[in-house]
Amino acid sequence: MNGAPALADVAGSARRVPFDRVLLLVWPAAIFMLALFVYPFLYGLWLSFQTKEGGALANYVHFFTTDNLYPTIWITLKLALPATLINVGLSLPIAYRLRRKSRFQRWVTTLLVVPITLGTVLVAEGMLIYFGPKGWLSQFVQLLHLYDAPIRLTHNFWGVLISLVVSGFPFTFLLILSYITGIDPVLARAASTLGAGPREQFTQIYLPLLAPGLAICFCLAFVQAFSVFPSAVLLGSPAGPTRVISIAAYEAAFEQYDYALASAIAMIMGAVQLVIVVAVLGLRKAFYRGPVVGGKG
């Protein structure tokens, strides 16, 4: 029942327990992490301080003083934050409506897995044809005389935003659906016998229990959206309004062959993501975190 103190007791007495050899099984994963994540990251960090002229911070100074570099942070945030908010905001009500097991729920989840498996490039290619000025959507709208000029939803901000929603929504939806179905529906029933209507059942029971999961989901979706690259190139205008931070890093690395500057940009990118994630997870602390069933487990 009372899990936390019991666990603490175990930890307290563990000091004298001999080394558990099962822990050795962690080694392969640890080596993997060291070789493929920690080392490249530290190497990149070191590289970002290697400068031909100026001090160790010259690359960072260069980024924040160059007119086509520092605005990429804002450009990327302007894409990633709305896309994440739209994805989480759309997923929550839809997943809530589909929280009961049904054939419909299975169909929707299957349908939504498809964009995940296709990958961003294929989705971008499809969107170019569908949303382009001569695409089906534009032609259909003109046919109905809803809007007589060709609709421009590609090679600009909107194209990238739509693509981020198309590829990000299934991910947030499935994640939130799994959080919602993990909440014991008896809790909402108990609330209803106590006088809570559908609205209160959502705001008083589901939402507080979902909040920590929503925060995690927001972070994962945001990090994914912030590192947008292929759709910003294919569907956006990579020289102008969708010149996102990953494009700046790509250009530095593979067009100017300035690996040090590219590393510095990557570090800045990571720092911005970290700031947002820490802020959101900090908010999460304000909410209850623990089992989401209402009784003896």
Binding site: D184, S192, P208
Partner: peptide, 19 residues
């Protein structure tokens, strides 16, 4: 609907709101 009947119910697994 249940919220307008106002009967008190005790559930088998208690269904206490964990938060």
């Amino acid at each position: 609907p249940p919220e307008r009947r106002g009967f008190g119910m005790v559930f088998q697994n208690y269904a206490l709101f964990p938060h």
